[in-house]
Design a binder for these strands. Structure first.
Length: 269
DNA sequence: ACACGTGTTATGCG
DNA sequence: TCGCATAACACGTG
């Protein structure tokens, strides 16, 4: 479920639990997830070093490594999760907020581990990803990512989102405009702001853009603190028989920016 | 059986 | 070239 809030939680887990531990072995044998690196290349770059910092911009994470080593980049794709275990093999909490799942759940089945780092103390960091849409690499190119959606300033946000004629939701989803907003966070933000996701950005005035940024910040912070974008107020109502939790109108469905979009056709204008 | 999907990116079109 | 829309990617799930 990774959008900015989930990625931030994963980054925090790495920062809290994975830094400073000596890397003893790396499994980079999944050539799809680790493309274009041949097997062993990422391993050779990391073994013997330590992760020394965990950073994030939008949905991309990266870790600096010791001894002037390369930067390790991690992207969760649509279904990836990071699990870090302590020397006893116990997972550090915070990574996956899906309630009620236990350590014996199928979600932890190692057949879906696509990349892993084994620490000298016996613990591991692994990328768990059923669909293999995640990505691991070295020295990421961040030049095509816009500013992080959680920290972008108002003038920058207004200039970037307001440019062009695309539907506002498509603009929010464009990672080169601002980085971190995914399909659910976009729907939640636009519902909170009472703005129609199909509305062209050239019809938004300064006030609209101000409200949009305010609700983006609120929705993002709230999702981080509550454990993910699926905790948004409107998310559970994104279905055919769903109703707007504010006014009770039937939710409407459309495709905007290539993604399934749910909105309140009465309040979002 | 078959369509769908919380992300990214190459390709295509005006 | 720019801005935007769409298909493709891999594969589990309902």
């Amino acid at each position: 479920m990774p959008e900015l809030p989930e990625v931030e939680t994963a980054r925090a887990v790495i920062a809290e639990a994975a830094l400073g531990r000596e890397i003893a072995a790396v499994d980079d044998s999944d050539t799809w997830v680790c493309r274009p690196h041949p097997p062993g290349q990422i391993a050779q770059a990391l073994v013997g070093r330590r992760l020394v910092a965990a950073q994030r911009r939008g949905k991309t994470m990266w870790c600096d490594t010791s001894d002037d080593g390369p930067v390790l980049s991690l992207h969760l794709g649509m279904s990836g999760r990071i699990v870090v275990t302590d020397p006893a093999g116990l997972p550090v909490e915070g990574g996956d907020p899906v309630r009620g799942r236990s350590a014996t759940s199928t979600d932890r089945d190692p057949v879906w581990d696509r990349f892993s780092i084994e620490f000298a103390d016996g613990g591991v960091l692994r990328l768990f990803d059923k669909r293999r849409l995640g990505r691991v690499g070295l020295d990421p190119d961040l030049s095509r990512l816009g500013p992080d959606a959680a920290v972008v300033r108002a003038p920058d946000f207004r200039a970037r989102i307001g440019r062009g004629r695309a539907p506002v939701k498509a603009r929010l989803l464009d990672q080169s405009v601002i980085a971190g907003v995914g399909n659910l966070l976009a729907d939640e933000t636009l519902w909170q702001a009472r703005i129609d996701p199909r509305r062209r950005v050239d019809t938004l005035d300064e006030d609209d853009l101000g409200v949009l940024l305010k609700e983006l910040r609120r929705s993002t912070k709230r999702a981080i603190s509550r454990g993910g974008v699926h905790t948004g107020e409107v998310i559970e109502h994104r279905r055919a028989d769903g109703h707007c939790p504010r006014c009770g109108s039937a939710m409407a469905r459309a495709t905007v920016g290539g993604r399934t979009t749910w909105f309140c056709p009465v309040e979002q204008i």
